[in-house]
């Protein structure tokens, strides 16, 4: 099987039997190509996040008198509002982060790792509160938990991949610049 992704080719360069020249070419390609691997992972993570959100809020019940009884308002009303707010902010930042890691931004790669870690942590806050309140059943909680963990893991991996690629590219560009300077000096 032929691996096309530059990161995977760099990681598995030895196993793929790639020469130094080919390795260099792969790095050179990074200069002009989007960070597709990280971006794809980011978007898949985002999708898991949205799914988890949908699963949690599928428990919203509308009473007969059309009054919205939001997730057992007496037990977790404040948390519910906070969760919705966090979801909106998370989605916004996640979208920004994905767009930045596309161009190998190291700063945003760390932010993505942070967002991923926070996402895993979140799984044990509001969903757990809902489980304890008896609003979420065990099965749904497990699904939501898995989705949050997948999302977090993907974001962390996307962030790490971006940091690695960024460093590789940075080192390569330094070498290129040094060679260029040397050539100009001559």
């Amino acid at each position: 099987m032929k691996i096309k992704n530059p990161l995977l080719r760099l990681i598995f360069a030895k196993q793929l039997g790639e020469s130094e020249e080919e390795k260099k070419l792969q790095i050179d390609m990074l200069r002009y190509r989007d960070n597709k691997l990280a971006t794809t992972l980011g978007y898949i993570g985002m999708l898991c996040f949205i799914l988890a959100f949908c699963f949690i809020y599928s428990t919203i019940k509308i009473s007969d008198s059309d009054n919205i009884n939001l997730l057992g308002i007496t037990q977790s009303g404040f948390l519910c509002g906070l969760d919705i707010f966090i979801n909106i902010i998370m989605l916004l930042f996640l979208f920004l982060a994905i767009n930045q890691i596309k161009v190998y931004s190291k700063k945003w790669a760390f932010a993505t790792i942070g967002l991923g870690a926070f996402q895993i942590l979140r799984a044990f806050l509001y969903p757990l509160a809902l489980l304890n309140a008896g609003i979420l059943d065990g099965g749904l909680f497990t699904v939501v938990l898995i989705l949050y963990i997948i999302c977090g893991a993907l974001l962390i991996f996307a962030g790490i991949a971006t940091v690695l690629l960024h460093n590789t590219l940075e080192n390569y560009l330094k070498t290129v610049k040094a060679i260029e300077n040397e050539r100009l000096a001559k």
């Binding site: 096309k4 530059p6 050179d28 390609m29 002009y32």
Partner: peptide
């Protein structure tokens, strides 16, 4: 076309 080949043609 293989991205590597594309790169080799573009540069």
């Amino acid at each position: 076309v293989d991205p590597q080949e594309i790169h080799k043609l573009i540069m």
